[in-house]
């Protein structure tokens, strides 16, 4: 193997997150970034889940608790509104449901195979005891 200079890397010692140049990462939304194949954004952990969160926007007050406490960057908020869950990166921990303050909750956990529309149609009603 050829000897490397002090400013050269072995193959695999350095990964580039993006293809090409990116100037303002903090100002560029995920959907507008050119992720390289080396970013875990391009991977999925969906098969880790046994249960999944379902979002019902009817009760959501856009407080963003679920956004800040989701460990896996899987609550998608745009312009201060919650728009959905990123099912490629959600690991099904259930934290978002725990921290959701609405009554009934705007996020609930269901078995992975559950049908979202059916669950939303039969969403639990307001829990009077809790309120």
């Amino acid at each position: 193997m050829a000897k490397k200079g002090w400013d050269e890397f072995e193959i695999g010692a350095m990964l580039r997150t993006f293809d090409g140049k990116i100037d303002d990462i903090a100002g560029t939304r995920q959907e507008d970034r050119a992720y390289s194949q080396n970013s875990s954004y391009t991977a999925s952990v969906a098969d880790w889940r046994l249960i999944k969160p379902v979002f019902n926007k009817d009760y959501c007050i856009d407080c963003q608790f679920c956004w800040i406490y989701c460990p896996d960057v899987s609550i998608i908020s745009r312009d201060k509104k919650l728009i959905g869950v990123d099912m490629d990166h959600c690991k099904g921990c259930g934290i978002c449901v725990e921290v959701c303050p609405t009554n009934p909750k705007s996020l609930l956990m269901f078995p992975e195979q559950a049908d979202e529309e059916t669950e939303i149609a039969s969403w639990p009603k307001k829990d009077e005891e809790e309120a």
């Binding site: 990462i25 460990p71 896996d72 960057v73 201060k80 921990c93």
Partner: peptide
Amino acid sequence: FSTSADRFEGANLLCPG
């Protein structure tokens, strides 16, 4: 705060939660 564009990505291998 929720308008931040995260610079940390999912599909890492940390435990759920």
